[in-house]
Design a binder for these strands. Structure first.
Lengths: 182, 182
DNA sequence: CTAAAGTTTCAATAGTTTCTGAAAGTTTAT
DNA sequence: ATAAACTTTCAGAAACTATTGAAACTTTAG
């Protein structure tokens, strides 16, 4: 049915899925759709992965809520065909975005609420300090992440290859700006 | 026992813990240790969070395997006191590193193995293409992440504030290098 | 309107993970 | 060597999550 290479990949996606906030079968479904050249129907997915039709239906709903898959229709065919919604890069961005909405945003708002109140004693003052530290880190990270989509994979690639060299480029930029201001 | 502000933070850490690869109580333990000025004993943790002593012991082991907490001893006291292992920044880096080891490295090696073999047909060729795309993205990300620790939080902060502006800085650098080569 | 082709829902079941608490283990002081 | 103070382990119970499959629903064609 599935070639062994493809199967090993799909099963691995299942394992990873369960660590990344979906469950095993949803991970498998996502992996399968990504490496399939042709769009697949719900029944095909159910057969290829040996999972019940109902489970596939719930999985599709979930993957749609993550904006990772799309429906397609073929003329003269009532079935719904599913494909990944965009490139790997776009899908990765969407997972980050969704997780930010679901996990980071509520955390930031809890931290902010907590920081507004006056600390009642020394231990609360310390706690607030730490919360501010966490808040600032999360805030920086989300700002950065929110710019990624506009950056595209090529620029990301050069940024990533640069690695810690980024520090040097930043210094260079600062120097340059200082000179201009003189 | 715990002030309401601190409690709400700790409970929230529990929720987040369960989405980030630990479980709820381990998340709570970690949150509690991070915002406590004083080191805590296992019994104190057990009392403050209302969880069994055995559970705390397992949680400590797990947090140590993530390199997130440290033991301390007080002179003339046999108990073990626990504190976070480093700053928030260092703890975040450790979580990324551990997850890379546990999740990304095995994925990369599976993808590489799969890509070495000759595709048997068109659909395998397509699958291999997609696998290469995933491989290259993960590979870039891990390279970048591996440089973060040497960068420190201040530089990260300026990089993050820069956001998509990074693109422009990269272009600037490229131009600069071209001119030097002429 | 009805049948056929398809999709979704949801109660029940299966499977997995987490937590407890009692027993076993370890370390230190005397 | 013993007892006291503390920690770890692990089998079983409790809690939670995922999966099935049959019934209900929707859509289209004739």
């Amino acid at each position: 049915m599935m070639s062994p290479k493809i199967e090993s990949f799909v099963m691995h996606c299942g394992e990873m899925g369960s660590r990344w906030g979906f469950n095993r079968t949803i991970g498998q479904m996502c992996g399968l759709l990504v490496i399939s050249k042709q769009p697949l129907t719900a029944n095909e997915i159910s057969d290829m992965l040996n999972i019940s039709r109902g489970n596939v239906s719930m999985g599709i709903k979930e993957l749609q809520s993550w904006r990772l898959i799309q429906v397609q229709h073929k003329p003269g065919d009532r079935k719904e065909y599913y494909t990944p919604a965009g490139s790997i890069w776009e899908m990765a961005i969407r997972v980050f975005e969704e997780r930010r909405k679901r996990e980071v945003d509520p955390t930031l708002s809890l931290l902010r609420d907590n920081m507004l109140e006056e600390p009642a004693d020394e231990s609360e003052a310390y706690a607030q300090d730490k919360m501010r530290e966490i808040h600032d880190l999360l805030d920086s990270l989300t700002h950065f992440a929110s710019e990624l989509p506009q950056m595209g994979p090529e620029r990301l690639h050069s940024l990533m290859k640069l690695g810690a060299g980024v520090g040097k480029v930043l210094d260079m930029k600062d120097k340059f700006l200082k000179q201009s201001n003189k």
